[in-house]
């Protein structure tokens, strides 16, 4: 097996390394058997560990829904906010304390339906934060309703005969809104996800990682796609790694090919940089920069 796989995990301890980042007193978590959210949490924990960040300075913000519960399980300063509003909460927190590393961790319905407006504006402003979207293509917590990511023809309880509501292509949306880092992987690609999260949190500016993840209870069952493992195998067999792909071309069809990879990596000044530079130009010595 490749050496990179063995090297980093040489932790000869009986304790699962993810546990140091979890609130173990809150386990077991609420997620269903075969749900991929927990898998993404492993990747996130590993990425944080490898990033060597001071974890006391990492704040995690979630909205509402299954993935919205991630904040509550992580042993970090964690904020479980209102439905769709994790990003503006994080915007306020980041602007008020620039020393904090802000990670928004939420689901596709939360971030892109009710929270869609905030996503595009935070990307436009280039607020320095990482947004991790666990995209299970459906509303899980409320019981399997169609999301703005549900592929056309897939069934949800609110489109019982199959959806005809065109979904977002999330990487394209992030790219065109101004995100400086955009990647998509699936929960099958655990090492790529880990690497992408590490890269995203080390990127200054608005970074976005989409992780396609199984929802066996609501998405797979209603659409007769088997269980979580069947979805994982679908990801394995139907994902095509295409780093640098034009995000316009990475939209998803029902059970079709999934284009994964790192699509965007670019530099833009952050909102704070723009603000401080501009106001320094305008006011010179009179400018009193926010001290944080």
């Amino acid at each position: 097996m490749p050496e990179e796989l063995t090297a980093e995990l040489e932790i000869p301890e009986a304790k699962n390394p993810v546990e140091s980042l979890l609130r173990m007193e809150r386990m077991p978590h609420i997620w269903c058997p075969g749900c991929g959210i927990g898998t993404t949490v492993n990747c996130f924990a590993r990425a944080l560990e490898q990033s060597k960040l001071d974890l006391d300075n990492v704040a995690i913000v979630s909205g509402i829904g299954c993935t919205g519960r991630v904040a509550g399980y992580l042993h970090l300063d964690s904020f479980h906010t209102t439905h769709g509003r994790a990003i503006p909460f994080a915007t306020g927190m980041k602007l008020a304390n620039p020393e904090l590393k802000l990670v928004v961790y939420s689901g596709d319905g939360d971030l892109f339906a009710i929270g869609g407006n905030h996503f595009i504006h935070a990307a436009r402003r280039n607020v320095d934060m990482t947004v991790i979207c666990v995209n299970n293509l459906i509303y899980g917590m409320t019981g399997g309703q169609v999301a703005p990511t549900t592929p056309v023809t897939a069934k949800g309880t609110t489109y019982p005969y199959g959806s005809y509501d065109p979904p977002f292509n999330l990487p394209y949306l992030a790219d065109s809104s101004g995100a400086v880092y955009v990647a998509r992987w699936t929960t099958y690609h655990v090492r790529h996800v880990t690497k992408a999260i590490k890269e995203a949190i080390n990127t200054r500016g608005f970074s976005f990682v989409e992780i396609i993840s199984p929802c066996p209870t609501l998405y797979s069952r209603r659409n007769k796609l088997g269980d979580g493992l069947d979805q994982m195998n679908y990801y394995k067999e139907n994902s095509e790694i295409r780093n640098g792909a034009d995000t316009k071309e990475v939209g998803m069809d029902f059970q079709g090919k999934i284009i994964v990879g790192k699509f965007v990596e670019r530099e833009r000044k952050t909102y704070r940089q723009l603000m401080n530079e501009h106001l320094t130009n305008v006011f010179g010595d009179q400018f009193t920069p926010y001290e944080g």
Binding site: M1, L5, T6, L9, E10, I11, P12, E13, N16, P17, V18, E19, L22, M27, P28, H29, W31, P33, G34, C35, G36, I37, G38, T39, V41, N42, C43, R46, T187, V190, R191, T194, G228
Partner: peptide, 21 residues
């Protein structure tokens, strides 16, 4: 088992982990 720990990275329930002995 090589102790690669991939099982632990996949496990959504934090129920398994591997390590090198």
């Amino acid at each position: 088992c090589t102790g690669c720990g991939l099982c632990g990275l996949y496990c959504p329930d934090f129920a398994i982990h591997g390590y090198i002995i």
